[in-house]
Amino acid sequence: MKQVHHYSHHGRHRNKISFVRRLHLLVVLPVALVLCASVVFGLEFDQRIFTHIPWGLLLLQLTATFLRLFIAYALSVVCAIPLALWTQKSRRAEEFLLPVFDVLESFPMLAFFPVIVIFFIDIGYLNLAAVVMLFITMLWSIVFNLVSGLKAIPRDVFSVAKMFHIGGLRYLLDILFPALFPSFVTGSILAWAGGWNIIIVAEVLHAYVPSGVEVADLFGIGSALVSASTSGDKALFIAAISIIVTAIMLLNFFVWQKLLHFAERFKFE
């Protein structure tokens, strides 16, 4: 009898590192590095660090920031999927849209942020300024990853769908979305990375308004970090950084690593 190829369906690269070891590598180690760096930069550790830091408030600020990122991400996903599918509608659509997306993506968003902030001050929704900023930052990572994912689907897969009359919603749910899942995960990881990167800027609104205009920073871990820095509260600064690093690492560990692993089963060979 012929030998069957026994590849694991759980992924081509089964990670053999134990859960505890991975948790150490991804969460404990980065936080420890932050704390070590704080010693190097002259922070004196004593009991006051643990008493005067408002940990509960920092966690609330982290939650507010996370919600802002999540709303921007959800909006990016909703817009990115039709935009990516639109490029594959026809060769002409692709030839027209991809250069347009390239130009739009290359716009330096930070340069436009003051305009966005002033616009949202006028209409009275300051939170939206940050969400729009994050949305634009996150959008293109997802769009471009989905476009390359679409191109990587073997042409015959579309033929199979056509041949067996799989159309409409079933085509999206049974064929297209599963086939795009690996590139969607990659795009999402990059989008969130960009989002965390920009969050400090997006929450510190007072830095982007002309003199004379009064505006409060948004409630969030990004603005807490900047305010701790400007007030010279090193302990609070280190605590805020540790919380951000821990949140990013936990997200990476419990969401992105799992999704990357899961996405392996959707990849064409």
Binding site: D156, V157, S159, H165, I166, R170, I175, P178, A179, K267
Partner: peptide
Amino acid sequence: SMVFQNSTLLPWRDVSGNIMLGVES
């Protein structure tokens, strides 16, 4: 019905699921 050069099976469906594609619609 057609058999393709590289079988073009859907990697997220098992053998039954892939064969079911031929009658699902």
